[in-house]
Structures are given as structure tokens and as C-alpha cells.
Nucleic acid binder design. Structure first.
Length: 466
RNA sequence: GACCCCUUCGUCUAGUGGCCUAGGACAUCACCCUUUCACGGUGAAGACACGGGUUCGAGUCCCGUAGGGGUCGCCA
């Protein structure tokens, strides 16, 4: 039987980093086994689901290249089918109408907790004559779960997990208004979509037991389950808004490349020996469930950043130029000449940055002259104590230069340093500051060639006294 | 509270009873390269949570303790 996996987010917010990893694993597993990877939007909670969230999730997946092999299924559209299955269960005696009130439910839970028992609802309506039902109440439909014994599940990540049936209560299939609950919908949809492997966060582990019995009640074969550990924040606690539970769009905005984020997420909880930098093709070839770890992992921005730097260096200059111009043009005008400079300088720029945001910042000097006094205190300091004079002096020395090439520039500047009795660094750093407004930049001669003689002379000669 | 899961360097992890005086990566520190930064190179420091077993031999198997996480909705 061919593998079918699915990623099934509920559209109550953006696609967060844990969801992205779950999608990745489902995608990789399907690809590795030559199967299909599907998407399903779990929007059965009409109150909390929003169109914006759906767009955000789909956008996030598209950016990561994790779109499904078929258009997404919208769970809410299958409500009639879900109800039909529930009615069938009722007719077969595998489910019953329960008239317990909210107060009675609450009292049961309180009592269970007080007595140290599992918090399980026991409905008298399971065995009571439906004829006793109150007239005006809208009942929920509950499934009849086994009451004795235990259930064992062979989870592909967690291994063998067993739970006693005292833990499992008769959960609700259909609400008072006749709408299906999540528990019913997932099972019916997964079955209808032919899902063979359910790979999801391990916060769903206990649901697997409920769903297992629902499959059985329906007369269907349960899929195999794989519950992957959750991602924690840097402090080991649950991921919060503050440190990582951001939408993938936030990572995009911070300047991470999708391939870097995927590589990072892949290594979080999964390993293939000592391999760290893994291409998508290799990931497809190597990924499998036995390689997934069982413990939660903390999110580490430093490592993501390192990986991002790697992929930045590997990326095509044209792609990077495009991204940088897009960012820069948000607040400064970019003309064709400026764009050409950024493109020409990209090779020298990209080896130094770790995110697109940094890359854009580093490329800024190709588009606008430094504003004095400089924001960068280290650069400002380089121009003090004679630095500015060195820059102007070098500007004058360069005015004569005909051959505006890296070689000629270097020869001229080294000669300049020598005649002034200065180490080359004492000349290069003030020039760097005057030309780029920073103490760190691509190679001096390289950027001088790209900036062009006119611009270089202008910046050097106009360096104000410090 | 009940139940389930987890526990190797600061972090992500390799490790499936002897190959482990525990390997790699990020981060840290030092040095090298060098016009700066980044890259790269070399090296250093750094972990099997604890306690019992099983075994000729345990990071690897079993039990317990501690710590962490998850779940207990007419949410998903």
C-alpha cells in the first residue's frame, strides 16, 4: 500500500515553527516512500477559524515549498459526511445520545479530581433508556469506549505505548447542535483521504487511543501513528511568542532563507549520523521515522543563523540582489545604477552576512552616502584623531589615478601609506569608514571599483573634519 | 491530581552491550589567515541526571528516584 501523509493545521493563527516542522516531516516521509503528501485545513471550529489564518498558513507553506500534492481539503465542508458516520454509529449501537448538563459534567470532573481518579466522564445515558430523555434538551452523541482492559499502540516514534481504559471516556462525536467534533472529523477525513501515516506533534499522543477505537467502531483499519516531540523555547519551556512561537512569516521577515529554516528544523529532533548540512534531495533520501528522537528540542537561533549564513553564501547572487533591493527600497530610493552596484557587490557582501536583513543593511552604502556623524561608533572613531584627514589625503592621491582597477588601487594606496609612514591598516580603516560608514565591509578595493572613481573621490574628499 | 512520554557537552545530536580514554555541529575561548568583518584552518574547554540491579562487560537492558514535558473540553 502506498504511503499517504497529511499536515492538518487548524486555522486559528499563523503557521508556527512547530507546525512547519510537522509539515516538513510529513512531506519528507511521503517523498521518501514515494507516496503522497496532503493538506487539510481543520476549520470545524467556525468561531475561531479565520480566512486570514488560512491565508497565512498557506502562504507559509508555499514559502517553505511544502504545498500539498493536491488542493487542501477543508474539513468544515465534510460536516455532513461526519454526521452521517456518527448517525451510523448510533444506529449500530456503538454510540449514544447523552443528556448530561454542563453542571453535571463539571461536578463529575471536580469529584474525580478530589478523589484522585482519572478525570473521566461517566454518562448514565450510555445504558439508560432513550425514552427517559428530557423533552427539550439537545443531546450530544458520545461513542461507547471499552471500559475494561487496555489499548496498546505501536507508535513509530514513541514505540509501544499502553493506556488503561479507565483513562478513556466516552468522548463526544456530535455536539448539541449536531456539528461534528474534531475527534470525529479527523478520523473520518483521514480515512476518506486514505491517510496511512499520521505524523503529528506528541500533544496528540493520547488522542491516538481515542481515535484508534473510533476507527475500530467504524470498521476501519487505524493508520500507523508517529508522534514527534514538541519544540521548546531556549529556556526549555513551551515555545512562547517571545522566543520562537512566531509565524514562519516572521522568520522570513528576519531574513532567513526557506532552505536554511528547513535544514534547521530537520535537524531538530532528527539526525542522520553526523550530517548537518543536508540538501533537500538528501533529506528525501535519508528521512525516516526511526531517525526521529523522542525528546523535546530547544530552539536555537544561533545555529539557525549559522546555517542561514551557509545557504546565503550558496545562493545565487541574482536572487539575493532581488531580496536585498526589495528590503532596501522600502525606505530608500533605488535606481538602476544603484541596483547594478548591489548586484556587482553581492559576491563580496553575501559571505559576510547571516541573514537577509543584515545583508540589506550591509549593502546600503552602495545606494547612499554615509551620513555624518556616523551611527556606528566604531566607524566614527576611525575618523577621529586624523582619520578623516587620511581619507581626504587618500582622495587627493587617488584623483590622479587613471587605471581604476583593484590592482592599481592597491598599489596606489599602499604607496600612499608608505610615504606617510603609516601601516596599511591605518589607511584602510579610515577609508572604509568614510566610504561605507562602517568599520566592517567587503574588501576595500573591490568596493571602490564598484562605487566608481567619481563617487569614491566625492565621498573621500567630502569627509568632514573630526 | 490521574495517566502517558522524555532525560549524552550551554544547545542540537551520534551512539542500538565490547569499535567510547563518548564522536560531530552551533555557541565559547586561543592561535593562524588578513585592509576590516565574515569565511576558512588549527587547537582548547565542555556531557552519559541520580541510585540500584542484569552481565565477564552498560551511555546502551531492567527497576526506582529526581527533574522536565504532554494530555485530561459540546478547542483543535
Amino acid at each position: 500500500m502506498s504511503v499517504v501523509t497529511r499536515f492538518a493545521p487548524s486555522p486559528t493563527g499563523f503557521l508556527h515553527i512547530g507546525g512547519a516542522r510537522t509539515a516538513l516531516f510529513n512531506f519528507l516521509y511521503a517523498r521518501h516512500h514515494g507516496g503522497r503528501y496532503l493538506l487539510r485545513i481543520e476549520d470545524t471550529d467556525r468561531q475561531r477559524s479565520t480566512a486570514e489564518a488560512i491565508d497565512a498558513i498557506l502562504d507559509g507553506l508555499a514559502w517553505l515549498g511544502l504545498e500539498g500534492d493536491a488542493p487542501p481539503v477543508y474539513q468544515s465542508q465534510n460536516a455532513a459526511r461526519h454526521a452521517e458516520v456518527a448517525e451510523r454509529l448510533l444506529a449500530e449501537g456503538a454510540a449514544y445520545k447523552c443528556y448530561l448538563s454542563a453542571e453535571e459534567l463539571d461536578a463529575q470532573r471536580k469529584a474525580a479530581r478530589a478523589e484522585g481518579r482519572p478525570m473521566r466522564i461517566v454518562s448514565p445515558w450510555r445504558d439508560r433508556d432513550p425514552a427517559d430523555a428530557p423533552e427539550d434538551a439537545a443531546p450530544v452523541l458520545r461513542i461507547k469506549m471499552p471500559q475494561d482492559g487496555e489499548t496498546r499502540i505501536q507508535d513509530e516514534v514513541q514505540g509501544e505505548v499502553t493506556i488503561g481504559h479507565q483513562q478513556l471516556d466516552d468522548f463526544v462525536l456530535l455536539r448539541g447542535d449536531g456539528s461534528p467534533t474534531y475527534m470525529l472529523s479527523v478520523v473520518v477525513d483521514d480515512h476518506d483521504m486514505g491517510v496511512t501515516h499520521v505524523i503529528r506533534g506528541d500533544d496528540h499522543l493520547t488522542n491516538a487511543f481515542r481515535q484508534h477505537h473510533l476507527y475500530k467502531a467504524c470498521g476501519w483499519e487505524p493508520p500507523s501513528f508517529a508522534h514527534i516531540p514538541l519544540i521548546h523555547g531556549p529556556d526549555g519551556a513551551k515555545l512562547s511568542k517571545r522566543h520562537g512561537a512566531l509565524g514562519v512569516d516572521a522568520y522570513r521577515e528576519m531574513g532567513y532563507l526557506p532552505e536554511a529554516l528547513k535544514n534547521y528544523l530537520l535537524r531538530l529532533g532528527w539526525a542522520h549520523g553526523d550530517d548537518e548540512v543536508i540538501s533537500e534531495a538528501q533529506a528525501v533520501e535519508w528521512f525516516d521515522l526511526p531517525g526521529v528522537g523522542r525528546s523535546a528540542a530547544r530552539f536555537d537561533f544561533k545555529k539557525l543563523e549559522h546555517l542561514n549564513g551557509h545557504y546565503l553564501r550558496e545562493a545565487e547572487d541574482a536572487r539575493l540582489t532581488e531580496a536585498v533591493i526589495e528590503r532596501l527600497s522600502r525606505d530608500i530610493p533605488v535606481d538602476d545604477a544603484g541596483r547594478a552596484r548591489v548586484a556587482a557587490g553581492m559576491a563580496g557582501l553575501k559571505t559576510r552576512a547571516h541573514t537577509l536583513a543584515q545583508l540589506a543593511q550591509d549593502a546600503r552604502f552602495y545606494l547612499e552616502r554615509p551620513q555624518f556623524p556616523l551611527d556606528n561608533p566604531k566607524a566614527e572613531k576611525l575618523l577621529q584623531g586624523g582619520g578623516a584627514a587620511v581619507a581626504r589625503g587618500a582622495g587627493e592621491a587617488l584623483a590622479e589615478l587613471e587605471d581604476w582597477t583593484e590592482e592599481a588601487l592597491e598599489a596606489q594606496l599602499r604607496a600612499f601609506a608608505e610615504t606617510h609612514g603609516l601601516g596599511f591598516g591605518k589607511v584602510a580603516q579610515p577609508l572604509r569608514a568614510a566610504l561605507t560608514g562602517s568599520n566592517a565591509s567587503p574588501g576595500l578595493f573591490e568596493l571602490m571599483v564598484i562605487l566608481g572613481k567619481t563617487e569614491v573621490l566625492a565621498r573621500l574628499l567630502e569627509t568632514p573634519e573630526h
